[in-house]
Amino acid sequence: MVKMGKDYYDILGIAKGASEDDVKKAYRKQALRFHPDKNKSPGAEDKFKEIAEAYDVLSDPDKKDIYDRYGEEGLKGGGGPPGGGGGGPGGPGNFSYSFQGDPHVIFSEFFGGRNPFEQFFGGQNGGMGENMETDDPFAGFGMAGGGMGGFPRSFGSGMGGMGPHSSVVKKPQDPPVVHDLNVTLEEVLSGCLKKMKVSRKRLNPDGRTNRIEHKILEVQIKKGWKEGTKITFPKEGDETPTNIPADVVFVLKDKTHLKFKRDGSNIVYTATISLRDALCGCTINVPTLDGRSLTVSTTDIVQPGMKRRINGEGLPHPKRPDRRGDLLVEYEVKFPERLSQSARDTIARVLLRS
């Protein structure tokens, strides 16, 4: 059984398999009920953020599909259900989700304005109570919900063009902004926190002009993550009056290492030996990723392409970080550039006897 973690459906008060329209209606109801401007009870701010995260996942078909199959762990961990299967057809593969959105921005985009309470009610509660416990916050005004983003269908002629014959154009979201995130093999071995500074445009309160804003995005690199793993920060791109900000996506890239190459969860070390050592046997010191040195001996003739495997000295498996891959030692034979005639004759005599 997949461990679900957070139950986004329960947070919004809907059943699994709810339609897109059901998700929107549920978000409208819960977001208005727990908005910190109207709900002053302890924990309302955290609940409001939790509702925004649930809506962010369930309103996105790709995120919702991964969540439905693998739960919060599969959605946020970049893997499938425990025991494997994440890399198969339709699995999440290297996808990794982390909610970094501003719940107030999501609320504003959904309702088309920063403060729908003030827009509709002139800043008054309208007698509904501070926490807005009613199932439909607009019920006390004789309005039926159902418009875009949960707006009522008709408000008369004084609502900025939101009358019964108006059409609402949904703002498009800009394509993802993709950045490479370079990591060393040592960082993949132990895991680390990367802080990435981004600059983006943010709208001013007037909703028309913008400013440049700097933000630090924290990326938690988990042990064993593969090159190509994607970490997505929703809606952290430029914001304009006509767009939904793009998602910012970081893609893991391995830095070139001086000693090792990566092969999945294994690492490869190339040991250069002389022709004499290749024929007569040798002992070499092999470095490890964590700074130790291992002694590896061979009495066999080193054949072309020969490798030695040292178990458990590679990188952690991304889905089982308590287990590690192997360290593969590849032998590269260095031939002499020249031989004296006497050396040639000696080698020829020896090889004739073998």
Rank of each mutant, 00 (worst) to 15 (best):
R33H: 14
L185S: 14
N125I: 03
P245N: 14
K197P: 00
A18I: 03
P321N: 01
V248L: 08
L217I: 15
M159Y: 15
E218I: 00
M4Q: 15
V188R: 11
E227S: 10
M159P: 11
I347S: 11
S19N: 10
E73C: 00
I284H: 07
R338L: 10
I51R: 08
E313N: 09
P318V: 00
K24F: 06
N210I: 05
N182L: 06
G43W: 09
D37Q: 13
E313R: 13
T346I: 06
D238G: 04
S340H: 13
P176N: 14
D21N: 12
D46T: 07
K215C: 02
K29I: 12
K255T: 05
A52W: 03
F260E: 11
G156E: 12
S190H: 10
N266S: 06
L193Y: 04
G127S: 11
P164V: 05
V329S: 02
N243E: 04
K63I: 07
M306R: 02
Q303E: 13
D180H: 09
P241L: 15
E187Y: 03
G71T: 14
T229S: 06
D247L: 05
L275C: 05
E213S: 10
G325M: 02
F155L: 14
L352S: 09
P92K: 03
D345C: 03
C282F: 06
K76I: 07
D46R: 05
D247E: 09
F335W: 08
G126F: 09
G91K: 04
D263I: 01
I216S: 13
K3G: 08
L58V: 03
D326T: 03
S166L: 04
G191H: 03
L203S: 14
G207N: 12
V57C: 04
G17S: 01
L289H: 11
E236I: 07
D300A: 08
Y70H: 04
L189C: 12
V350E: 12
L217P: 09
G85Y: 07
D135S: 12
D322R: 12
M132A: 11
G112V: 01
P316A: 01
G79Y: 01
R338M: 14
N204Q: 14
G123S: 13
S41Y: 08
F141T: 15
I244H: 05
D60L: 00
G112A: 06
H104A: 13
L252I: 11
E133V: 03
H179L: 05
Y9K: 06
T298W: 08
K38F: 14
V296G: 06
G150P: 04
K230L: 08
T232M: 12
P175H: 15
M143A: 14
I106M: 13
K319P: 00
G74K: 01
